[in-house]
């Protein structure tokens, strides 16, 4: 069975674990660097990206995560998406720099502007409820990046090779299609390596 980790430094970890398990893979939480060793893919959950980054630095996660991402799939939601971006608007530095895109944090406004909207996600399906909470969005993407979904002309989900990201929270609904999509990506990556 595929084993997918959820980075458990802070944020909505439990929900991702449930969604991964409902999508037919085994889920484990990752709090320490050595726990990256025996997983086939990694989910970086929603939470506060500044808080997560501080804990990533404190526990020397940055380089191991980058190395892990070289050949294993990573799926970031909301704060996880911010961690994956090469460029963050208004900031000189980014985090893991996995996906060739520029993101803007808290781009839809404050919490009172947080919303739910129906989305069409390429390769996943229609009528997908996106839960956006103080969400970022993707301002621009490089040529290698496939845009999976837009909301009001703003890019809210994308894929580059074995990296997947969403500005919304698929873990907060019981629609597991996006997690199933990621599990398939992990399956494919594992077959390629084998």
């Amino acid at each position: 069975m595929l084993k997918i980790g959820v980075l458990a430094l802070q944020g909505a970890v439990r929900e991702h674990v449930a969604a991964i398990e409902a999508s037919g893979a085994e889920a484990v939480t990752v709090k320490r660097v050595d726990e990256l060793a025996d997983i086939d893919g990694l989910v970086m959950p929603g939470g506060e990206s500044t808080a997560m980054r501080r804990l990533i630095d404190k526990y020397h996660f940055l380089e191991p995560l980058k190395k892990f991402a070289q050949n294993k799939p990573v799926f970031g939601t909301c704060a996880g998406l911010i961690l994956m971006a090469k460029r963050i608007q208004g900031q000189d530095t980014a985090h893991l720099e996995l996906i060739d895109m520029t993101v803007e944090r808290n781009a839809f406004g404050r919490q009172v502007d947080s919303f739910e909207a129906e989305l069409m996600i390429h390769g996943v399906g229609e009528d997908y409820t996106g839960v956006f909470i103080r969400a970022p969005f993707i301002v621009e993407v490089g040529p290698e990046v496939e845009i999976l979904s837009k909301h009001n002309d703003r890019i809210v989900a994308a894929k580059q090779g074995h990296f997947l990201c969403a500005a919304f929270h698929p873990e907060l609904t019981d629609d597991y299609r996006l997690h199933q999509y990621f599990v398939k990506m992990v399956q494919t990556a594992k077959e390629v390596v084998a």
């Binding site: 909505a12 939470g47 839960v131 909470i133 907060l172």
Partner: peptide
């Protein structure tokens, strides 16, 4: 259709704070 202030959006905001200070 865009819905703000839903139960899911309001509770979800707190879910994102989990494990934090």
């Amino acid at each position: 259709m865009l819905k703000t202030g839903t139960e899911r959006v309001k509770r979800g905001m707190a879910e994102m704070q989990k494990g934090g200070v």
